[in-house]
Design a protein around this nucleic acid. Structure first.
Lengths: 344, 344
DNA sequence: AAGCGTCATGACAACGTTGTCATCCTGGCC
DNA sequence: GGCCAGGATGACAACGTTGTCATGACGCTT
């Protein structure tokens, strides 16, 4: 009964290897061996330990194991703009898929474009000793990651490059995508093309604007300056921009939108603004794009590939890859469905 | 120079409190006090320690701190079907929002409707000693969570109830939503209503089917049995079902779909199957639903509220709430936009 | 001058686990 | 019978941190 009392673990707490050891009448170390499937434990002993583990529903404390062995925490951190945004949720899923394949778990957090929150999240993840970090930069300064990288936590930037740190980056050819969209519209006879972009503080918004400017510059006789309206956008700002684009001496006959959210706002505004039907190409695909009338032509970017490649790069770094930092740029693709093929 | 050698930490590793202590010429404990903002450290000492922390870019190892103090790991786990599914990504975001408010981070993982993966993920999260678990059950048996709950890790089921365990659950009134949809269609004159549901192995699919059966039973003279087709669905199976529904002696004049994915498949199939325009109500909203023609009437469920309430319940448990297990059921709402108001 | 309270600081153990090394037992060999 | 190889097992330290308690210095009271 003394034995019984010693065996009883404090209620509410979880059993430890010591509890298991007592119950199986072996030493702590033998339990450790069984748990870690080390060789050199007699079958009968293994059996006893297994039974004790089962009876107490013991589960090893991974954190303690990691602390002692100094090995990996088998976890990744990912800081992105918004887990609920379809683009980033696809990206996250792809990262998770790769992580699971390596037996890793994923900590995810949304920065909401707030540089402070980005930093706070990233550093909190480092404090938990994640083995690697995937970051969609929100701020314009990632120097705070320098020491983490120096300390051995690899970082891969995705969708946008990090600033002030040298690390890998996996990006999309934003400018090229918009250039192609402009060329596509031009091929269908458009010369007056409007652009509604996101907040130019965001890298991708700047790049897409750059692509637009380049694309339009390549067209003879197209002067776009007045047909550009950068965000952040609301239903009102989009509507106002469209009204303006239409009221121009030579109204816009086609539009390019800088991201999903803006595309949706434009579609709604156009529906309300009856009687004007400019051609339209949106950046990034939408679930129901093919079911709209006319169905929506888009610049497709592969969020899954972005996440997958970033994760693979990260795992390469985690397993010791010391090659110079890479910058991978994924192509985009125009998916022609109708809205981009209307003629002026 | 002996000092210098002793101060130098092994390259690649992260500095520890001992390293900081040596550099600041104080004891380990004093560093701990400064890091944790404990009172009773002289300003000059605090300053020296701060400087050393800065110089070494020391960051506390949260895992070690948790291990020693036995306190919370300040992390939550969430196991759901698919992070990339808009419904679940909204839910995840809501959970994350509540978690951030408590200073917690979130581990997320997708089960993909695989019971084995659900179990593996959930137990892996427990092995990391998350302070609480939010689970969307994929399998039909969550008994494996009993010991975890007993050991003090609270679990909240969301979207679907757990089986074989007593724990809180936050659900949606699936049956009620579909009943309301059927009533809505009936009010517009429909008596021949078809239902395309998901795999009946899934709780929500069963509940929605139940609501459909109840709703139709409440209509005089409506005999639906032949107008039900459960999944899992593909483009082909949906098309076949629609062809059948239309070929009936009394063809269906209205449809209810059991989830987003099926709604989209039905919309595509109907677009291809020209000339037939049944009324349609889909379960769960879609981003562009209002931009379709006719725009889509849906049974709206509040994924954010689901996640928020589940997380709040979980935090209540984490902070010691011992009230009996709760089952919260959130209402749904019919959002009438056009497709559900067509007359036969 | 002795005594005492307060403040700043440090020594040491402990959290749950794993790595290193020592010990013990068994059986085979000479 | 003595010796040794090798297998099974355990004792102990250590991972990086925090809680407990002890220590020493200082200033104040009597």
């Amino acid at each position: 009964m003394t034995q019984a009392r010693r065996t009883r673990r404090r209620p509410g707490g979880r059993p430890t290897m010591v509890d298991v050891a007592r119950r199986a009448r072996v030493s702590l170390k033998t339990v450790s061996r069984v748990v870690n499937r080390e060789s050199g434990v007699a079958p009968r002993t293994t059996e006893r330990v297994r039974a004790a583990i089962e009876a107490l529903s013991f589960r090893r404390h991974d954190g303690a194991a990691h602390l002692r062995s100094g090995s990996t925490t088998a976890s990744l951190g990912i800081v992105l703009m918004d887990v609920a945004d379809p683009f980033y949720s696809l990206l996250t899923r792809a990262v998770e898929e790769v992580a699971i394949g390596h037996g890793f778990l994923v900590f995810a957090g949304s920065s909401d474009e707030d540089p402070g929150r980005e930093r706070q999240l990233a550093l909190a993840l480092c404090a938990r000793r994640v083995d690697g970090l995937i970051v969609v930069p929100a701020g314009t300064d990632q120097r705070y990651l320098r020491s983490e990288i120096a300390a051995g936590t690899p970082v891969v930037f995705v969708d946008r490059p990090g600033v002030g740190v040298s690390a890998d980056a996996v990006l999309v050819d934003n400018a090229g995508g918009v250039r192609a969209a402009v060329a596509h519209l031009a091929a269908h006879g458009h010369r007056r093309i409007g652009f509604l972009g996101d907040n130019p503080a965001i890298y991708t918004a700047r790049e897409r604007l750059r692509g637009f400017t380049q694309g339009v510059a390549a067209l003879r006789g197209a002067a776009p300056d007045r047909l550009i309206e950068m965000g952040p956008h609301t239903a009102q700002s989009v509507r106002a921009a469209l009204v303006r684009f239409r009221a121009e001496r030579q109204p816009a006959t086609a539009l390019v939108t800088g991201n999903n959210r803006i595309t949706v706002l434009v579609l709604r505004a156009l529906a309300a603004l009856r009687g004007w039907h400019p051609a339209l190409i949106g950046f990034d695909d939408l679930e129901l794009a093919d079911l709209l009338r006319p169905s929506l032509t888009v610049i497709e970017q592969d969020a899954s590939a972005l996440g997958r490649i970033a994760a693979e790069l990260l795992f390469a770094r985690i397993s010791g890859d010391r090659r110079p930092n890479q910058r991978v740029v994924l192509p985009t693709r125009i998916v022609a469905r109708g809205s981009g093929e209307r003629t002026p």
